[in-house]
C-alpha cells in the first residue's frame, strides 16, 4: 500500500509540474508596468538603488512585518527551548588556529558589513546582507570559543534584538504626521532610510546570530 501511495504522489507531482510549465510557457509578454512605476518614482524615493527603494520605501510595510517575523522566530525558539533543562557547555574549546583566524576576520567582517550597509543606498547591498555578515562573524566567534551561546538574553541584549523593530515602528507611526504610515517626506527620505537600515543591521545581525547561538549551546536539544 505504501509504495502505491508514493507512486500516486510522484505522479501527481509530475502532472502538477507539467501543467505549471505549460502554463508558464503559454503566457504572453510580461507586464512591465510596475518596474516603470518604480523607475518613475526613484527620484523621490531617497535612494538610487531600485531594490532598496522598493524594500524600504515603496513596500516598506512588508519589511516592517518581516522584521517582526524574525524577532518572533527568536521568541518561538526561546519558548520551545528554554523550558528544557540547561545543559550549557560554554561553546566548543576550539583550537588556537581557528581562534586566531576568527580574531583576525571579525573586524574585517564588521567593516564589510558597514560597507554593505552604506552601499545599499546606490548599489546592491543593504541591511539584510550586512546583518547576515555580522551574524556570520558571531557564528565564527562562537565556533572558535570566544563567544558563549545565549541561554536567556539580558536586558541590554534584548534591547539590541528588539531595537530595530521598535525604531522602525516609532518612525512609521511618527510619519503618520505626513498623512500616512511610513510616508517619508521626499527631502528626508534618504536620511530616514539610512537611519532605519543602520538600526536594522544591528538588530537583525543580533537576531540572525541569535537563531544560531540560542540553539548552539544545547547538546542534543535537551
Amino acid at each position: 500500500m505504501k509504495s502505491a501511495l508514493r507512486l500516486a504522489v510522484v505522479l501527481l507531482a509530475l502532472v502538477l509540474a507539467g501543467t505549471l510549465m505549460a502554463a508558464i510557457l503559454e503566457l504572453p509578454g510580461a507586464n512591465q508596468s510596475l518596474p516603470a512605476a518604480v523607475a518613475a518614482h526613484m527620484a523621490v524615493s531617497g535612494v538610487e538603488h531600485p531594490v532598496t527603494a522598493v524594500l524600504l520605501n515603496f513596500r516598506g510595510y512588508d519589511t516592517l512585518l518581516e522584521v517582526a517575523v524574525l524577532l518572533l522566530a527568536l521568541l518561538g525558539i526561546g519558548a520551545a527551548v528554554h523550558a528544557g533543562s540547561e545543559t550549557e557547555d560554554g561553546g566548543a574549546e576550539g583550537d588556537p588556529v581557528l581562534a586566531a583566524l576568527a580574531r583576525l576576520l571579525t573586524p574585517l567582517l564588521i567593516l564589510a558589513a558597514g560597507y554593505l550597509l552604506w552601499a545599499g543606498a546606490h548599489r546592491p547591498g543593504g541591511a539584510f546582507q550586512a546583518a547576515a555578515v555580522l551574524a556570520g562573524a558571531a557564528v565564527l566567534l562562537h565556533l572558535s570559543g570566544q563567544m558563549p551561546a545565549w541561554s536567556s538574553p539580558g536586558l541590554l541584549l534584548r534591547l539590541g534584538l528588539a531595537g530595530g523593530l521598535l525604531i522602525f515602528l516609532a518612525l512609521a507611526a511618527g510619519l503618520l504626521g505626513q498623512g500616512a504610515l511610513l510616508r517619508y517626506p521626499p527631502e528626508y527620505a534618504g536620511a530616514l532610510i539610512l537611519l532605519i537600515e543602520a538600526s536594522l543591521t544591528i538588530s537583525l545581525g543580533l537576531i540572525l546570530a541569535g537563531l544560531f547561538l540560542m540553539l548552539a549551546g544545547r547538546r542534543g536539544g535537551a
Binding site: 546582507q129 547576515a132 551574524a135 540572525l208 547538546r219 542534543g220
Partner: peptide, 28 residues
C-alpha cells in the same frame, strides 16, 4: 541583492544551523 542574501543567509546561516543541528543530533 538576492545573490548576496542567498549566499550569506540561505547557504551560510541555514547551512550552519543545519550542520549544528546535525551535530547535536549525532551527539544525542
Amino acid at each position: 541583492d538576492i545573490a548576496l542574501a542567498e549566499a550569506a543567509i540561505g547557504a551560510g546561516l541555514t547551512g550552519a544551523l543545519l550542520l549544528d543541528a546535525l551535530g547535536a543530533w549525532r551527539r544525542a
